[in-house]
């Protein structure tokens, strides 16, 4: 599933069948190459739902058991979110110090949350090569 397609997707509570918000951003942990949380806007509750609290990441909606799983970001999520940690649009550097371009999209597994592919204009990079993401660049293992 592509990152650019899930932005704005509605988040629905299976308990009340109500829309509780819309997907704002994915929070990615570069060390485990997985989506660890989803930030949500327009919610009456908190703005973060942990990946483990999501019922399903569907093509039309993200379902959660109820609005209560939306909480404020915990410390682990806070450390990984914010523009400094955004992967989308960031320049990509290899551990050899070579620049490959900028991330135009991110493909992830909607079941496990694993980041499978970083999409760059110059070609795809396996998500498992991700080492770290910071304000200057996303770092990937040299091929």
């Amino acid at each position: 599933m592509l990152y650019t397609q899930v932005k704005g997707r509605k988040v629905v509570s299976t308990g009340t069948a109500e829309t509780v918000g819309r997907v704002a951003d994915l929070v990615i942990d570069p060390r485990s190459h997985t989506v660890v949380a989803v930030t949500v806007r327009g919610s009456g509750h908190g703005d973060t739902v942990l990946w483990s609290d999501i019922t399903a990441f569907g093509t039309d909606a993200v379902t959660v058991p109820d609005g209560e799983v939306l909480k404020g970001a915990n410390d682990a999520v806070k450390e990984l979110s914010g523009t400094a940690h955004d992967v989308l649009g960031k320049r990509v550097l290899t551990t050899d110090g070579e620049q490959l371009g900028s991330v135009s999209d991110i493909d992830f597994d909607p079941q496990s949350g694993a980041v499978t592919v970083l999409v760059l204009p110059s070609g795809d990079i396996a998500g498992s090569r991700l080492v770290g993401v910071g304000p200057y660049a996303a770092i990937v293992h040299a091929a």
């Binding site: 770290g132 910071g134 200057y136």
Partner: peptide
Amino acid sequence: RPVVTLNGQD
């Protein structure tokens, strides 16, 4: 040339 950490910080 920038000096960059593995955490992506220059």
